[in-house]
C-alpha cells in the first residue's frame, strides 16, 4: 500500500514543481521575451524610433526575466487552482504591469510623449507632469533597480504561497481549509 507522501515543499520546491512542467518554462521564456519587447517598443516610440535607453540594459533584462518567471508562477497557480483565482490573476497582472511601469521609467528622456499621454489621461496637468518627470529623471536608475527588487519580492511571495498550498494539498488538505478547533 502506497502511503500518502507529503511533498515537503519549500520555495525551492515550489519552483521545482512549477518548472518541472515544460509548458511553464515556455511561459516564462515567452513572457520574458514579450516583456522585453514591451520595453523595446515603448522606448522606441518615445525616442523618435531610436532605442535610446538611459538605464543599464541589464536592468531591463532583469525586469523582463523576473516578470517572465512571475508570469509562469501565476499561470501555474491559476491552472492548479492552488490559490484563489483572484490571487493568481493578481500575480499575472503584476507581471505585466511592472515591465510597463519600468519602461515608462527607463524611457524618461528628453521627450516623454507616452508617459505624458498616460499621465494626462489620468488627469495630471502639465505642471504636475513636469514635476513627476523631474523626479523620475533624477532617480531613474534607483527606480529601475527598485522595480527589479519588487519583482523579486513578488517571486518570493508567490513561491511561498505555492509552496504552502502544495504542501497542504499533498497532506490531504484543501488549500482553503480553515482551521477548526477540536473540542
Amino acid at each position: 500500500m502506497q502511503s500518502r507522501k507529503t511533498l515537503r515543499t519549500g520555495r525551492i520546491g515550489a519552483f521545482a514543481t512549477v518548472f518541472r512542467e515544460p509548458r511553464y518554462i515556455a511561459i516564462a521564456l515567452l513572457g520574458a521575451i514579450a516583456y522585453y519587447f514591451v520595453y523595446f517598443i515603448i522606448i522606441r516610440a518615445s525616442n523618435y524610433g531610436i532605442f535610446l535607453i538611459t538605464v543599464p540594459l541589464y536592468l531591463i533584462y532583469a525586469i523582463a526575466a523576473t516578470s517572465g518567471i512571475l508570469l509562469a508562477l501565476s499561470a501555474f497557480s491559476i491552472a492548479k487552482s492552488l490559490l484563489s483565482l483572484k490571487a493568481g490573476t493578481a500575480g499575472g497582472i503584476a507581471s505585466a504591469f511592472i515591465p510597463s511601469v519600468g519602461s515608462m521609467v527607463a524611457t524618461c528622456a528628453c521627450s516623454y510623449p507616452i508617459l505624458g499621454s498616460f499621465l494626462f489621461f489620468l488627469g495630471v496637468n502639465a505642471f504636475e507632469l513636469s514635476s513627476i518627470v523631474s523626479v523620475i529623471s533624477q532617480y531613474e536608475l534607483e527606480a529601475t533597480f527598485l522595480i527589479v527588487v519588487v519583482n523579486m519580492l513578488l517571486l518570493f511571495y508567490y513561491s511561498g504561497r505555492i509552496a504552502r498550498a502544495e504542501g497542504l494539498k499533498h497532506a490531504g488538505k484543501s488549500p482553503f481549509r480553515v482551521k477548526i478547533k477540536r473540542l
Binding site: V18, F19, A28, A62, A65, V148, N151, M152
Partner: peptide
C-alpha cells in the same frame, strides 16, 4: 530546472 530558475533570479539581483 528549478535550480536554474533560482540562479536566474539571483543573477538578476547581482546584475542589478
Amino acid at each position: 530546472i528549478a535550480i536554474a530558475a533560482l540562479i536566474l533570479s539571483i543573477f538578476a539581483i547581482v546584475i542589478a
